[in-house]
Design a protein around this nucleic acid. Structure first.
Length: 509
RNA sequence: GCCCCGUUAGUGUAGUGGCCCAACACGUCUCCCUUUCAAGGAGAAGAUCACCGGUUCGAAUCCGGUACGGGGUACCA
């Protein structure tokens, strides 16, 4: 097979990591990064590591870690090593690895790659203001480089906050290869000495992730393209510590419809929200995989296995993609249709059984739901569902004690109130006596009835449908009638007639 | 401001110098099927391949510039 060589699978066993910062819900963009991490690891027979980067104590959200894991689990992105499952490189939470960062910082200090800096935040701010005032680019001026140990001690004694900064060469070009972008160059002259250890004793992202990635034998760093500009810093740290940097794979951003970085204001942006809206995890998985990557041909609907098999980091796109929820919806429908009836039922149960307030069936419907009844209903709505949640709507009237049809809807379309009333009267009589009460027979009888009334099937069936289901849009009428049962159908049709009469559209008109 | 990345129909992608006056999918529209809604089937519309210039017999594909979009420029990640 003339397949192009795949660098990632050549050195089998990529170790990838997803390293979210627990500051909030897991964003769909983050999910996609995690997905690519997972795909590469699974494709190459390597490991996928979950690491929590909680070095920002100000933005730390204790709930976030739980919800991030829940998102990954929902999507089936299982990790081989992580804070909860442990692993050979534990711990996997940065706040528990502070010793490592302190050791590394000391090494960098000792080797002269880094220095302690007592510049205060106020001074920094003042510096930037001054630079801006003169029209110069704001940035640190490396003023702390030549502090003597004595000066630092003095500052420390005075209670000033001390940070550690990495020394950046004054000139020179740093080149690195990115799997997605190719060769990228940066000019050191444009980079200032940056903080690697904050005054609160926590490392910055730059330092911490480099150490962890090295300690954990990470081979591929897959992350959003917003990290490209700071990659030179990371390489600098690797070099100073005498380590070889990993392979960098900077993936394009996901944008909202307005082409700006996807965020909350673009609607549901967290993975769990898609779950709650009735999306299948395999649909989100499939859709996200294709947002920024393609297998190279027209294949769109793919199983998890096929995606793993065909994935390659070399085919990750360079340009950002707009998140098209319409297409996700379509794909969700396709995958729902691919489910077996039993499988769909299993997925539907928890959705329908949720409390009404959370989007489930009305609380008046008894839980647990009658599985045998549901089993009969699933085929009626199966190919009509685009989301699991739609089943609440399209199946609700099967479970409800009564439906309250809209008077207008009872006689809409090709019908009129008088005809609707007449149709319902005739239908009621038929429904009371017809035997057997089964779809095929019901249909035959109703068609005969239409003929004897000199009506087209439509104008006869529509009022009945609305009376029975409460909506002009519903599953096939006679399957529906049979499933609901004679008693309740008769009751609903009778109610609809009353409703019409109450609104002055008696059969006599 | 400076730096970095990007730019094929509304959207996601295919295309890596001739097979491309550009293909597939979503969406849109029309028709068929049909008791409604879907699903399914058959079609249609929609792209000066961001723009300008260059290389070449030949460019969506290579080079340069410009424009536009996004990202970065923190003791946030």
């Amino acid at each position: 097979m003339p397949l192009s060589p795949d660098r990632s699978s050549a050195n089998a066993g990529a170790r990838t990591r997803f390293a979210p910062s627990p500051t909030g819900m897991l964003h769909i963009g983050g999910v996609r990064t995690a997905l690519y991490d997972w795909l590469l690891a699974r494709k190459t027979g390597g490991q996928f590591v979950l690491r929590i980067e909680d070095t920002d104590r100000a933005r730390y959200d204790p709930e976030a870690e739980k919800s991030i894991m829940e998102s990954l689990r929902w999507l089936g992105l299982d990790w081989d090593e992580g804070p909860d499952v442990g692993g050979p490189h534990a711990p996997y939470t940065q706040s528990e690895r502070l010793d490592r960062y302190r050791d590394a910082t000391q090494r960098l200090l000792d080797s002269g790659h880094a220095y302690e800096d007592d510049t205060t935040p106020e001074e920094l701010e003042e510096l930037r203001d001054r630079q801006k005032a003169v029209g110069k680019p704001p940035g640190y001026d490396n003023r702390g480089r030549h502090r003597t140990p004595a000066q630092i001690e003095e500052s420390r004694a005075k209670g000033l906050q001390i940070v550690v900064r990495m020394k950046v060469p004054d000139r020179g070009i740093l080149r690195f290869n990115d799997t997605v972008r190719g060769d990228v160059e940066f000019d050191f002259a444009l980079l200032q000495d940056f903080v690697i250890m904050k005054s609160d004793g926590y490392p910055t992202y730059h330092l911490a992730h480099v150490i962890d990635d090295h300690d954990m034998d990470i081979t591929h760093v897959i992350r959003g393209e917003e990290w490209i500009p700071s990659t030179p810093r990371h390489i600098l740290i690797h070099q100073a510590l005498g380590w070889a940097p990993p392979v960098y794979v900077h993936v394009p951003l996901i944008l909202g419809k307005d082409r700006s970085k996807l965020s909350k204001r673009h609607g549901a942006a967290s993975a769990l929200e898609y779950r709650d809206q009735g999306f299948l995890p395999e649909a989100v998985f499939n859709f996200l995989a294709l947002l920024g990557w393609s297998p190279g041909d027209d294949t769109e609907v793919m199983s998890r296995d096929e995606t793993v098999r065909r994935f390659s980091v070399e085919r990750i796109l360079q340009h950002p993609a707009v998140f098209d929820s319409e297409k996700l919806l379509w794909m969700n429908g396709v995958l729902i249709r691919q489910l077996s009836a039993d499988e769909l039922m299993e997925r539907l149960l928890p959705v329908l059984e949720r409390p009404e307030a959370e989007g489930g069936l009305p609380d008046s419907v008894a839980r647990p739901i009658d599985r045998e009844f549901l089993r009969k209903l699933v085929p009626l709505v199966h190919e009509r569902l685009k989301t699991l949640n739609e089943a609440v709507e399209s199946l609700g009237f099967f479970f409800a004690d009564e439906v309250r049809p809209d008077v207008e809807a009872l006689s809409e379309r090709k019908s009129d109130p008088a005809t609707a009333a007449r149709s319902l009267e005739a239908s009621l009589a038929l429904l009371k006596s017809v035997e057997p009460f089964e779809p095929e027979h019901l249909e035959a009888e109703f068609r005969a009835l239409a003929e004897s009334l000199d009506m087209k099937p439509g104008p006869l069936f529509t009022p009945v449908r609305v009376a029975v289901t409460g909506s002009p849009m519903a599953p096939p009428l006679f399957d529906t009638i049979a499933a609901i049962g004679r008693e309740r159908v008769v009751e609903r049709v009778a109610n609809a007639i009353k409703l019409l009469e109450a609104n002055g559209a008696g059969a006599g008109n």
